[in-house]
Design a protein around this nucleic acid. Sequence first.
DNA 1: AGTCACTCGATGCATCTGCATCAATCTTGA
DNA 2: TCAAGATTGATGCAGATGCATCGAGTGACT
Lengths: 165, 165
Amino acid sequence: MKRKPSTEASAAWIRLMRVQSRVLDCVEQDLKRAGFPVLAWFDALMELSRAPNGELRPVELEKQMLIPQYSTSRLIDRLVDEGLAIRRECKMDKRGLFVEITPAGRELYKKMGSAYAVAIEKHVGSKLTDADAAKLCGLLDRLGCACHDTPASPAPVARDAVQAR
Amino acid sequence: MKRKPSTEASAAWIRLMRVQSRVLDCVEQDLKRAGFPVLAWFDALMELSRAPNGELRPVELEKQMLIPQYSTSRLIDRLVDEGLAIRRECKMDKRGLFVEITPAGRELYKKMGSAYAVAIEKHVGSKLTDADAAKLCGLLDRLGCACHDTPASPAPVARDAVQAR
DNA sequence: AGTCACTCGATGCATCTGCATCAATCTTGA
DNA sequence: TCAAGATTGATGCAGATGCATCGAGTGACT
């Protein structure tokens, strides 16, 4: 019944953990050295700037980013503190609110996007052929069926939220 | 000019982040539900129990686990607090010390190992053939090497040469 | 020997995270 | 209509993490 994991499966697990940890670290360090905030901020700004009117309910942001509710709440706190977003009243549901990206937020999003693209190319793109990257995608998808991203996406950088731990 | 990452590379990056986050979460939750501590403890106990005499210098542990120095120091604190390891004097180098796994540590390592193996099989092994797992290993390995620090980036600050650990 | 640069491990501090819980509001159903 | 329950977002608290720095010890060079 409970077959032991094969050596191949174990090896894949170990590499999955180690390689992502290392690659994430490299990318985050590159961005940090360039004076940018953590990737989670970028993800949030991306979701907001894609949303109609540049605004979202926190609960929507939470679903997009796959992070816990309290985490969303505090992320919004920080974005608001930095003037990258504002909280707006939600008239339809007085429990809730809207978070709207500010011009400063859009500007940071844009600049960060370029640096991010460079970092991804440096730490991922340059090490794999497109065909191998596609193969890697296929294999990874089988491990986590929750990633329905269209590879045919025309966007330059990550068009989907990048999970920052 | 900075070449943009291909869509394939971006997709691979996104999946690498999301899938590992998700799989790690699944495995950690399985272990937590069974009453075990976090995986970092297991990793440490594994390194210790593999080492000759069941003891290692913190600096060695740090290299094996790829975590920062202070993180190692505090992980050892917790292991010692739980009676899973002890700190021993190091006569060869009075700056340093040895960390030695205790019988309780070995026992936890063993029990946790079984649960861990089941979880890996469930969340990784069962989803890939051995051949595919091997292919995945090969692709991931190519991402793992050398994150060399090129200060060639046009970014503002290029201060410390922080090496990713 | 004396100096200087370096390694090893610990720790103070600020921040971040996970967990539990809260108040306010909405929805449901009798 | 009103009570019961669910949903939304915030927060107090404990523990974890990142960063910088410290003190002790080592090793090399003069």
